[in-house]
Nucleic acid binder design. Sequence first.
RNA 1: AGCGGGGUAGGGGAAUGGCACCCCGGGUGGCUCAUAACCACCAGGUACAGGUUCGAAUCCUGUCCCCGCUACCA
Length: 477
Amino acid sequence: MKKPIYITTSIAYVNAEPHIGFLYELLAADVLKRYHQSIGHEVFLVTGTDEHGTKVAQAAAAAGQEPQAYVDQVAENFKALKDFGTEYDYFIRTTNLEHQQFVQEKWTKLVEAGVLQKKPYKGFYCSGCEAFKNESEIKDGKCVIHERDLEQIEEENWFLILSDNLKSGIKKFIEECVEPATRRQEVLNVLESGAYDEISVSRSREKLSWGVPVPNDNTQTMYVWVDALFNYLSALKINSKENYWPADIQIIGKDILKFHAIIWPALLLATGEELPKKLLVHGFINVDGKKMSKSLGNVVTPAALKERYGVEATRYLLFRQLSFYDDSNFSWDEFDALYNGELANGLGNLVARVIGLAKVIPTDDLASIHQWIEVHRRKQQAFFREILKRDRVDFQREVGGFVEGAEESLINRGDSFITRKLLWRETEKKSVEVRAVFNLVLELSFRLEPFMPETAKEIRRQLETLESKPLFPRLQK
RNA sequence: AGCGGGGUAGGGGAAUGGCACCCCGGGUGGCUCAUAACCACCAGGUACAGGUUCGAAUCCUGUCCCCGCUACCA
């Protein structure tokens, strides 16, 4: 029996409401889960929230709430992304007591392994970065990023020490598991620069009170990343599924690559755990060319997309318009154009055409539709197996329903076929051709199923009943 | 400053050394089954200057320009 597939997203930091970047990541995990399930794999998908840290405490204070009450409330907003058909199996929260206990056990192990050491530390601390800065990051006594004065701090902190041995294990991991290749190179540079040879992984309690206490050291709180990264394992422990490790696919954003490609494998190697098989790194979504931010007021929320396009079309549009592995740009106009062009005029219209024509397929012929469906299901399974063998799934292409090895979509092929064969004339004499295009739509429904599961089922329902109902009504200006 | 990403048709995006492709928009013709939808054809493109190569959007060097790593933020 093959080990079940374990897929994770990053856990979202709860100092703000969810936006479409996180939804996109979660949807990608969901699509991969559906690909695997459709070929018979068991899958466990975990997402969740990272709820510790100074910024969360500050956000709570700003909202006039106790941190726990605040995170309880925000976590619900992230859980609600299930509305988008994201079938996660477990939602991990780092304030979960079992998780915290788990992290403390791991911490103790890391100390025993000699990887964590407490050392007096004298350094320059930037309150903007919430990190100590080394010489290359300081200019004229100021942080080069924040251009603000640094605090000189002398205190004892815990450090994660990367031995040469650990580093070579990390390097191997990066070379084999990080996708896409540009990210691989980027993070290899960081590893080799030595900037992460010693990482401060605790903060004094006064500075950071909202976090997991360091075991046997009541002066220190764990750095949030140590706490957060272990969620991928604690989620399994909590569900008694430890045997699902190592993760098959971990999906993250490019901003947290260093933590996942350097610190995470270090923690795993040092505690004798296997490393994840793949780290899939996505880019960011800009809005009208600018980064999404509260101050610019250009944050696009999942709810806004859902309201305009509905869940199924939102899933389609995010994957079709945006480039998963690179940064890309969101604009309402482009989404509208794509919705009308490919979903209303393309897919929806084609299904309606075919239903109309299919009335000439002899009834006893149509009675065997279930067999046709099974044929297509098996055909798609073979295709999906091929897709999953690739280093990374090209979501943008797959969601477009392209014919294998061609730059033509099945939709265009169907429309073109109907027109060339003039299927609406003397239709009763062309039942062979009608059946061909009918089957093409069946195939399309399976192809799109990981992205638009409800639509796929609805297409098959309409084909079985020959009852036409617009799938994607045109958007009016 | 440093690190990283990028510049592809009028707009937006693909293309991991091998026919530059997709969506929107423009033009011409066709069709009227279908959601005023669809089909065919046409026009139009790799920022600039060199180099490597049988072959470069892709690799190398240089120039110009844009963006991210900067509160909030994936």
